[in-house]
Design a protein around this nucleic acid. Structure first.
Lengths: 365, 365
DNA sequence: CTGTTAGCGCGTTCAA
DNA sequence: TTGAACGCGCTAACAG
């Protein structure tokens, strides 16, 4: 397997030059005479020489890779972000190292260690829960916080969760709903609180009450969506619309409702969050808030490489814009309007569920 | 940011010993006197020393990480496999480097290069399409092929796609279906052909015809499932069951059918492939072939680390067992039997759709 | 434009 | 049980 590796020395001898020249010919070709360069290249192709990046990195005092710290690698939410990361990193000559913060050697092992172990030239952290108690003042490498965030001081890339939640609520209000509930994420999560807060504030702005029993606890997962459905069914007074803090929960919710003979959006309108691939292919297709995940990955990577290369110590954080994707899980309220025919009879024109995005977006305050 | 890093030298001076002793105290503690070991450890904690893995790797002639070559990082199918890989790799002290073979610097850049660039101590390749024309005889590091495979000589970890397809078909036959179609993966894919072949052979074994028009082309994606639904609807003579080569297609299919007023499983039984998370939460919950993705990752990693550490040149390839997960997208045929009461009347016992796995498994030849 | 020299930080002989 | 010395393969001064 491991054939004796050919080094820069071998090339030097073969090409009749010094190792320094070989190094230059490889890293900065135009700083070497054409003839010698040719000789070097000849030797390289002839031997199949491959530069030893470990030695190079040692000399350069770098590692050549950046590390993504993900709370759950198996969660598809992150895969597209990783793709975004990889696309800019590989273009910039960095490798992408991934680690699951929940599975690590010791789960939750001293994060300070991971951050300072010198495994990477920079780190993207997706797990806000972990960052809380890290001493930011003595980080060895630049760190960017993506998606989640907390009270720590760190450049970040994320969406405006409160504004996004407000977008969902505004849409439901624009569609005529006045009784709106919210299915939340897990307790203690920043995303949970900010989306709930956004929901609260938007409702308040519209002068709409949010009774505590309409705040249904979830955990972003499918199963908790199904649970939420049962909570909703058990309600004495039910809201006509539910804004779920994740698409997965919306899926679970809609499925369980159907199992109980409740039709979405006829009997309940639902808005999700994320715009996972499946959202467009559910029945009904899910109206949701789209997070540009690939873009989040790209921006995080760009930010990190900028810090590393320019030594720009403090890059500007970025708020990634989200958008409302209207599909078919939200109906006009009262229900009669959701039937095109009824809508025509009443409004004298095609209203109902198929309004194009812009129409509704512009109704926002 | 980058504070002057403390090296083994600093520790040596601080502890009043030589660098060699420090090195030993760290890598092989019991080969050093208790007192000196304590002194070293003291100096280590005092300074916050972190071993420089680049230097270590250079000395040890390794990189400390293994590389996963994935055709599409954004595809959630791989995320769980990556989690499996990461879990055993990090336990074994390796880092997990990921690269998207379609996005790489030059998409599809010379694979020989990637494989031999010396970026990793071992490689897991998930993209069978890439391996085809690599010269296996001069690989610098061990390579394991996962999931996909071709005609090349390489240790692999995968499921038996033909047997898995047969499992799906056998189940449908056991449920009374005699007209069964298949929605395929993309052209030219090994998975596509093996699953189709498995379907073919199983049907033949049961003496059931497979008319060409019941082989509906797909590409594993959601949209192609919806397309397949329209193909099925347009059929003059329709099969009573469809085996889809991926869950995503099954989702798209079921959704589009519902849009057209066709109910699954009442009017069409559907079996998927993969058992993605959502499968259990669709309506109807999807009966499917479960691929243990996390396990596939784990086994690939174990195989690779075994080769690297033991220098076992040729580990035994592994066939990962799959299982049929029965849920609600398959009905007894003829349709009347799908009602439990009818089943009881006829069989004198609880048959129907809820038969435990084993019952069906054992019906296989 | 090119060669010489000196490390990057570590593990590991070989003696003591 | 420990220390001195060497070198993994490469790049960055500094001469020439």
């Amino acid at each position: 397997m491991l054939r004796k590796s050919v080094t820069i020395q071998d090339i030097a001898i073969l090409a009749g030059v010094s190792t320094a020249t070989v190094s230059r010919a490889l890293s900065d070709p135009h700083r070497v005479a054409v003839r010698t360069r040719a000789a070097v290249m000849e030797a390289v192709t002839q031997t199949g020489y491959q530069i030893n990046s470990t030695a190079r990195n040692l000399r350069l005092k770098r590692t050549g890779s950046i590390l993504a710290l993900v709370p759950d690698l198996a969660n598809p939410f992150f895969s597209e972000i990783l793709a975004g990361l990889a696309s800019v990193l590989s273009a910039a000559g960095f490798g992408l190292l991934v680690a699951d913060t929940r599975t690590e050697p010791d789960p939750l092992m001293n994060l300070d260690d991971v951050l300072n172990k010198g495994l990477a030239d920079g780190i993207v952290v997706f797990d806000g829960a972990l960052i809380g108690d890290v001493r930011m003042d003595q980080l060895r490498v630049p760190v960017v916080a993506a998606c989640e965030w907390g009270e720590f001081e760190l450049p970040w890339v994320r969406i405006d969760n409160e504004a996004a939640a407000a977008m969902a609520v505004d849409h439901l209000v624009a569609m005529g709903h006045r009784t709106i509930g919210h299915v939340t994420g897990p307790d203690g999560n920043v995303l949970t609180s900010s989306r709930l807060e956004g929901t609260r504030m938007a409702l308040e702005r519209h002068g709409i009450e949010l009774p505590p029993e309409w705040i249904i606890p979830g955990d972003f997962g499918l199963a908790s969506g199904a649970l939420a459905a049962r909570r909703w069914l058990a309600l004495e007074r039910r809201p006509s619309a539910l804004f779920c803090a994740s698409d997965q929960m919306a899926c679970g919710l809609i499925g369980e409702l159907r199992n109980n003979g409740v039709t979405v959006p006829a009997e309940l309108s639902v808005v999700g969050f994320d715009d996972i691939d499946l959202a467009a292919h559910l029945t009904p297709a899910l109206t949701t808030i789209r997070q540009p995940r690939f873009l989040i990955g790209e921006r995080s990577a760009k930010m990190l490489t900028a810090v590393i290369e320019n030594a720009d110590p403090w890059p500007a954080s970025e708020l990634i814009p989200v958008e409302l994707v209207q599909r078919q899980s939200v109906a006009q309220y009262p229900a009669s309007l959701s039937l095109p025919i009824a809508a025509i009879e009443r409004d004298g024109g095609p209203g109902g569920t198929r309004t194009p995005n812009q129409a509704v977006m512009s109704r926002r305050l």
